[in-house]
Design a protein around this nucleic acid. Structure first.
Length: 302
DNA sequence: AGCGGTCAAGTTGAT
DNA sequence: ATCAACTTGACCGCT
């Protein structure tokens, strides 16, 4: 059966994850700064709990956690270890409670680090910052029981094969908590499934198939064929991405996401698979609700 | 409460 | 050169 995943936030629900700007946070005195950051982390643990409860109550089987769930945690000047903030141990316990709740409710949790996370960069400082960020997300993933940290191939730097080889070498810098969760996803600019599938097979990493990106940046592989190859990279329930183009497939740029999913964009070959599909639609849980209703209609038989 | 300027980070390609 | 896009517009000072 398809398990639908909600990405990071809600459209109609009063569930909010808080963040902070570095400029403002950096102007606070140390004590006030620590209290402010601790307050944001605690509020986000509460928001995560509320998110899980909402998902379970509305047939949403997966939730993607925002990279800023611990705001500024890896910032070069303002970064911190949650256990060192006031009440930090109790906040960690709150996140662990979220993990227990997710397990109880049968919810899958994932992370999708930002575009700045680049293992293929020729700049060692960029790679080092990326490893630090991945370590942080893996730490939270351990607390809450998330099983995927999904990133893109990054830039090509004029030599895709060379960049991927550099990415492969950077994998050795990753700890077990990251390595056991890491997955690679095709993007709509640079790295296609044809580029990443061999890389994933070589390094025994799962491939997150984004069919929308694939349609924006095709590579000669068909959706059906790519689906079959992607499934094989997963030793557990696979994770795919789905969206529809904001202005339609005939619009000037198909990449921006629509508020909702057009049922015609759901690959027919995904029917009947045991699969998590993260729904990247601006209307968030409302889009999932609509998609679920359409998938439940007889003619789709999902 | 609402408005507008501003916000850590990298890379690409359209304009 | 600037800007939007990328998993997500939200934060914050001001009125």
């Amino acid at each position: 059966m398809l398990r639908l995943g909600l990405c990071c936030k809600f459209e109609g629900e009063p569930i909010k994850f808080l963040t902070a700007t570095a400029l403002h946070t950096g102007r606070l005195a140390p004590g006030a700064r620590a209290r402010k950051l601790a307050g944001l982390c605690a509020a986000n643990a509460s928001a995560l709990r509320a998110s899980l409860e909402y998902c379970a109550a509305h047939g949403i089987g997966c939730f993607r956690v925002n990279s800023q769930v611990l705001p500024l945690a890896t910032h070069p000047e303002l970064g911190y270890d949650l256990k060192d903030l006031p009440g930090g141990r109790a906040i960690i316990a709150d996140f662990e409670d979220c993990g227990a709740l997710a397990r109880k409710l049968g919810l899958r949790l994932t992370f999708h680090p930002d575009q700045f996370i680049l293992l293929s960069s020729p700049n060692p400082a960029v790679t080092a910052a990326s490893v630090k960020e991945l370590d942080y997300q893996a730490q939270v993933a351990e607390w809450i029981g998330a099983d995927v940290i999904n990133i893109h191939g990054g830039g090509a730097y004029g030599d895709k094969a060379g960049a991927l080889a550099r990415g492969g070498r950077a994998l050795k810098k990753l700890g077990r908590a990251v390595r056991s969760r890491l997955a690679f996803e095709n993007d709509d600019r640079t790295y296609t499934p044809s580029d990443l599938l061999p890389f994933c097979r070589e390094h025994k990493l799962p491939f997150v198939y984004d069919v929308h990106h694939h349609r924006c940046l095709p590579d000669g592989l068909g959706v059906e064929e790519t689906t079959a190859l992607a499934l094989k990279t997963w030793g557990r329930e696979p994770l795919f991405h789905l969206s529809s183009p904001k202005a339609g497939w005939r619009g000037s740029d198909p990449r921006p996401h629509h508020d909702y999913i057009d049922i015609k964009d759901v690959p027919a070959c995904w029917r009947g698979l045991d699969l998590t599909v993260e729904v990247e639609a601006k209307a968030k849980e409302l889009a999932i609700k609509k998609l679920r209703a359409q998938l439940g209609a007889k003619k789709w038989k999902f």
